[in-house]
Amino acid sequence: MAYLHTLGMALLVAILAIASPPARAQTTAYAAGQGAINSIEVGVEVRASVLGRCGFASGGAPSGTIDQADFDRNGFTRDFAIQLDCTGASRIAVTSQNGGMASAAAGGSGYQAKAPYRVALYMVADNGTNSSSSCDASSLSAGGSCAFAGTASSSTGLRLAGAATKANGSYLRVSAPAYAGADTLVAGRYADTLSITVSVSP
């Protein structure tokens, strides 16, 4: 009897083993400090872009006036600070309304009603690279030959290779020595207006 009892128990174990479903992988998520540590790896792709922008920073456009008495004897020089807000390379260009310091008074034989002066640009990028050039105001009028004459575009103007978003010491300078022309400057008020534009550059 003992033999048959043992055999019966073995058959019961075998039947239970056959009826049991196959084991599954552990999927239980345990709270911190309980059970095995579960690690699930997923991939999340994140993409973004920054559109290029280029212009003068708030309050960063060169502005102001210079009013020098007896500039024919004393000359003049003044710097106007520039701060750009460009996230990449840029170009800056300048045009002169009169192509020199012009007087409303008419000239005549032996007299001149327009005085020459120079315009210089010195531009500095955030990474320290810089670009500079200078020209006579006469070459900044329409169709002028100056390298930064005209309206700034992707191909026109003095090119600054790096981004510029800080006050880096960039400036526009106007200057003239004492007048040394052959003709005497006619008495009166002299003036010129410079227009400065900036553009993104490839």
Rank of each mutant, 00 (worst) to 15 (best):
A2W: 11
L4N: 10
H5A: 10
H5C: 08
L7F: 05
M9W: 12
A10N: 07
A14V: 09
I15C: 11
I15K: 10
I18N: 07
I18W: 12
A19V: 14
P22H: 04
A23D: 10
A23G: 08
Q26N: 14
T27P: 07
A29Y: 15
A29N: 13
Y30E: 02
A31L: 04
G33T: 05
G35M: 04
A36I: 14
I37P: 14
I40M: 03
E41T: 15
E45V: 15
E45A: 13
R47L: 13
R47I: 08
A48E: 07
A48R: 13
V50E: 09
V50T: 11
L51V: 11
C54N: 08
S58E: 15
A61I: 06
S63V: 05
I66A: 05
Q68W: 01
Q68N: 04
F71C: 04
R73Q: 11
R73S: 08
N74H: 06
G75T: 06
F76Y: 02
T77N: 14
Q83V: 14
C86R: 13
C86P: 09
G88D: 15
A89W: 15
I92G: 00
V94D: 02
T95I: 05
S96R: 04
Q97V: 00
N98P: 02
G99P: 01
M101E: 00
M101Y: 01
A102M: 05
A106I: 12
A106W: 03
S109C: 06
S109P: 10
Y111N: 01
Y111I: 06
A115F: 01
P116Y: 02
M123E: 06
M123T: 06
A125T: 04
T129E: 12
S131K: 10
S132I: 06
S134P: 03
C135L: 00
L140N: 02
L140R: 00
S141W: 01
A142N: 06
A142D: 00
A149H: 03
A149P: 00
T151Y: 02
T151H: 00
A152S: 05
A152I: 01
S153Q: 07
S154C: 12
S155V: 09
L160E: 03
A161F: 09
A163I: 09
A164S: 15
N168M: 11
Y171K: 08
L172C: 02
R173K: 15
V174N: 07
S175T: 14
A178Q: 04
G181M: 07
A182W: 08
T184I: 08
L185P: 00
G188H: 06
A191I: 10
A191G: 14
D192S: 04
L194N: 03
I196Q: 02
T197V: 01
T197P: 02
T197R: 02
T197W: 00
V198P: 00
S201T: 08
P202K: 13
